[in-house]
Simulated assay, not measured.
Amino acid sequence: MDRRQGLSVRLKLTLSYAGFLVIAGTLLLAAVWVFLLRGRSNSLAVPDRSDFLRVFSPGSFGPVVFVPAGILVLAFLLVFGLVGGWLLAGRMLAPLIRITDATRRVANGPLSYRIRLPGRRDEFRELADSFDTMLAQLEAHVAEQRRFAANASHELRTPLAVTQALLDVARNDPHHDTRELVERLRVVNTRAIDLTEALLLLSRANQRSFTRTRVDLSLLAEEATETLLPLAEKHGVTIETSGDLSTTTGSQALLLQMTMNLLHNAIGHNLPEQGVVWVRTGVRADMVVLTVENTGEKLTSELVPTLTEPFQRGTERVHTGHAGFGLGLAIVKSITRAHDGTLTLTPRPAGGLRVTVHLPAAPTRARTDGGQARHTPGAGSAAGGLPQPRRDM
């Protein structure tokens, strides 16, 4: 919540206690005036020894009168201090009590509850706002995990159901062609393995269970381009790469997988012919930037933000003929977040998608020789033994 700056809790307590002491001191001075200075011609004079003697002299107030009155004044000050301090402390700590009640309510109830503490900004209200923000993020994360578990169960159930159906057919028809059955089972099993590996990679990225090393995104872009160049050649897609040294810290394997997924999606979701993919790397301030942009069908601004959700599929593939799992950009998002970066998806006005990844830059010497390369169908071949991309958006 956007609040105006208010007094801090520490200053409020200081002013409250100082005001209380002023009131107590005023009462004490009033008591001194009543019992020591009453009857003097100059009431503003400082009491002297004669005033004290007069107070305790026979015929004056005397101890019989002054001592009980003093005790009554002290008792009044004690009661006033206890009541006043209790009320002041309760008023100052009321926001904290409300926050504590909110934590208990959330612990035993829904995550949709919010404190929404009113008033101007101070330490307690900043704490309440931070708690509300944490609850919102936690609620969104839990909802995302529930959707992910439901979708993953659905996706994994499909190949298992197909396998069960194929086995039932083979059992009921002994004369069925076993070679066809084995081939179909192999395809279904391969798809189940690919899906399981994608889920494991997504889990690994979310847990940040990797060792950080210095990684150059420009080299990863070149490696991914060389690996996927045969796929681009097969479907007439031109890949253009450019950029300078862009060094960050993280897992080279995960960042390579991220780059491969982006490039694979850009090739798969492209024009039926004469499609283009642009891959660029660079450095902006203290961030390194990887941009993958492709031609293709026009995407709506409502669809683009959902493409990073697990099992969310965009437009149908025009090249690969593979339905995909809808985990490609979800994995990219998780890898980017695990490396403390940001992922931005922007639809191109002419059609296609622009994906930009910002990652923290690692300290490195500036590279003076910028390079640009253009890969066209027939210009190169894939490098063997490199990781393959997770399929689809």
Rank of each mutant, 00 (worst) to 15 (best):
V215A: 03
L202S: 04
S153Y: 10
H154Y: 11
L160T: 05
S153G: 05
T225M: 00
D216T: 02
E197N: 13
L201V: 10
R204S: 14
E180T: 12
E180H: 10
V162Q: 07
E183H: 15
H154F: 07
R179Y: 13
K234E: 13
V182M: 07
D216R: 09
D168L: 08
T241W: 12
V187P: 14
H264G: 13
S153H: 08
T190R: 15
L256K: 05
Q207W: 09
V187L: 14
A170T: 01
L263K: 03
N189D: 12
V169Y: 05
P174K: 02
P174E: 04
T178G: 15
D168V: 08
L263E: 02
G243D: 00
T227F: 10
V187A: 08
G275R: 03
V277K: 02
E240A: 11
L201W: 14
A221C: 08
R179W: 10
H264D: 09
N172V: 06
G275T: 00
L185R: 04
R204P: 15
P230K: 00
A224Q: 03
L245S: 05
R179V: 13
L202H: 10
L220I: 03
P230I: 00
E222R: 09
A266E: 00
T241L: 09
A253T: 08
A165N: 04
L199Y: 01
S242R: 11
L255A: 01
E197G: 15
W278R: 06
A192M: 14
M258P: 13
L200S: 08
S203Y: 06
V187R: 09
N189I: 15
